[in-house]
Design a protein around this nucleic acid. Structure first.
Lengths: 259, 259
DNA sequence: TATCATTGTGTCAGTTCGACGCAATGCCAT
DNA sequence: ATGGCATTGCGTCGAACTGACACAATGATA
């Protein structure tokens, strides 16, 4: 394992400059929803203390969106993923050559200061909405762990990744009425309280249960199923699924009303 | 003039690779509002038929936002500009080496195919909101004209700039309630019909005059002045100005309601 | 079988929204 | 100078929507 990490890093340092678009990377904020909490998929790298967002480089002839899709497939095992570019981070100070040189030294590489990886990098931020239960977290070649973390308990991240995460969340809140949030984050069948909890978590604010239900049903994007979710300690709530066609149509105009 | 263009292009081709972040550029969609129409500032380059968005490269130690501010200052003469990054365009097919090689040949340069300018470029899109009357359009070193064009009559642009423009407009429509549109596009004093026309132009839709007025005043972001705009062929409308403090505060939450 | 938290549905008053009426204003043609 | 007329300022009204809350139904648990 450690061996593979080393081999991979060596290749990357030596040949990455030929393979990849110079000075450009991407980072993904992968959102999932589990046990009524919003989760983010993070990587732990060797010899770097804070966790990091899954990221990658862009091959010279590759569309950036395709590169992001590739990164996501490799990290989650998912093929069809909702993915959206939301910002680009272009502060020259975000690439700290000394920091990275020290990191590589710690891992046993001596890297020339002209190496492509030590140059300035601009990164493109993507956020993804995935169905938690379908994800099989999978560390990349330069990581030793890949795990879900609770969104609201993430304090510090690698480099400027915390800034990227915060911006992603802000974007998500802002685009709540225009993106298929529920469809991508919830399982096919879900209950109204689950949907509400998702909205509450994203907005970080409590909503009135009855008004939420009225509003959601009034959009006409839900299909009420003839089943209930048994097993909870209380009255079994009905299950719903999205009417995808109507959902897509409603999102084009944006769901009406603010939160 | 032509001479300066040639000299500049020669420097760019030979030394740009040392000065600038490789494979990365930026393009600005500069919006202005004049005679009740939304305008966009465009450049005409030598030996390129369609007009182009003003753009530029990013110096190796320069923040991309700073580079965009620099480009805008050079094109418009304005110092304090509302500027917002809205997307990145990363299709490898947007960089057409053969097309550019032909263009340079036409201008009398023989450019090696490994030249930095012929590599793949990813571009960052910015949109700017400026006060039309304050702008002094100024072509850059590789252009022969810099002029305002009517937004809705722009059909074709250089490379993928039309796509960039359309995306900028879409973003503007989408962020109408969150960005200080009026404050940046209108002169300090303006009339309610002017403000309404601005909204109508951006949204490309007619609004009811009386309801628009009610809604705008209800936000509490306008200061009604004790003056009227004389000279029009009809009843003189009152002048307004923005209460900047309240405007900023209202935008944080976003102006309420959809359009 | 009673308990109890939770869910499904309804009510109600206050507010907002869209559509429209009408009078006031200020150029302009006569 | 004066009446015409397009435009502006302000108001009205009913319908639709919103926020706050009441109450009955449900289903696991004790």
């Amino acid at each position: 394992m450690q061996m593979a990490v080393s081999k991979h890093m060596n290749d990357l340092l030596e040949k990455g400059g030929d393979w990849y678009q110079p000075g450009l990377s991407l980072d993904c904020v992968i959102f999932g929803f589990h046990e009524n909490q919003l989760k983010v998929l993070l990587l732990k790298m060797l010899s770097v203390e804070p966790w990091a967002l899954p990221g990658g480089f862009i091959r010279k002839d590759e569309h950036i969106d395709d590169a992001a899709t590739r990164v996501l497939r490799e990290r989650t095992g998912l093929q069809d993923i909702f993915l959206k570019q939301f910002a680009i981070f272009g502060d020259p100070a975000r690439s700290d050559r000394k920091y990275h040189q020290a990191r590589f030294r710690k891992e046993g590489f001596s890297v020339d200061k002209n190496n492509w990886l030590l140059q300035r990098f601009v990164t493109v931020g993507y956020y993804a909405l995935v169905e938690f239960s379908h994800v099989i977290p999978n560390p990349d070649n330069s990581s030793i762990a890949c795990e879900w973390h609770d969104l609201h308990s993430i304090r510090e991240l690698y480099m400027d990744h915390k800034v990227i995460l915060d911006k992603a969340l802000e974007t998500l809140q802002h685009e709540l009425n225009h993106q298929p949030i529920g469809y991508n984050l919830l399982p096919q069948k879900f209950t109204m309280p689950e949907l509400q909890k998702l909205y509450e978590t994203i907005l970080d604010k409590k909503l009135d249960r009855r008004n939420f239900q009225r509003r959601m049903t009034s959009y006409g994007i839900l299909r009420k199923l003839n089943e209930t979710r048994k097993g909870g300690a209380h009255k079994a709530p009905y299950l719903y699924s999205f009417d995808v066609r109507k959902y897509q149509k409603a999102l084009k105009e944006g769901l009406q009303g603010g939160w």
